[in-house]
């Protein structure tokens, strides 16, 4: 259960992106979470709400895009079937071990924020 620490990092990264551009409150942050990242999206969303609550970014949405690991069998090619909540280890057709690649993403993809104080002043001028 390290989702709180991750939510704090996501907030820090998103805030830095907005601050560099003179932006205001965060509207939404989109993150990619891979199959193998050992992160549960509902727990991450819960932690996110706790982290932004009481800050200027309260109410900002966290959007999770799930990235699947790719499974390949040397004989049968890419295997689309999945084990519940994870990946398969053995090919369902021939029983050989599957090669698993990708699925380790844990990235901030997109940050959406409102106008900052300076932006609003420019708009009013």
């Amino acid at each position: 259960m390290h989702e709180t620490g991750l939510a704090i990092e996501i907030h820090r990264i998103a805030r830095a992106v907005a601050d560099e551009r003179g932006g205001g409150a965060l509207e939404s942050v989109t993150v990619a979470v891979g199959d193998l990242a050992a992160v549960e999206p509902p727990l991450l969303e819960f932690a996110w709400r706790a982290v932004v609550e009481g800050s200027a970014d309260a109410g900002a949405a966290l959007i999770v895009e799930w990235e699947r690991a790719r499974q390949d069998c040397a004989s049968c090619g890419e295997i689309a079937e999945r084990a519940p909540g994870s990946w398969l280890r053995l090919c369902p057709r021939c029983g050989e071990p599957l090669r698993v690649t990708g699925g380790d993403a844990l990235d901030v993809l997109r940050v959406v924020f409102g106008d900052g104080a300076s932006g609003r002043e420019r708009g009013a001028a």
Partner: peptide
Amino acid sequence: MTEVNVREKVLAAN
């Protein structure tokens, strides 16, 4: 409202 595409690892600091 501004939308910025980044691709930064959440664990970049680590």
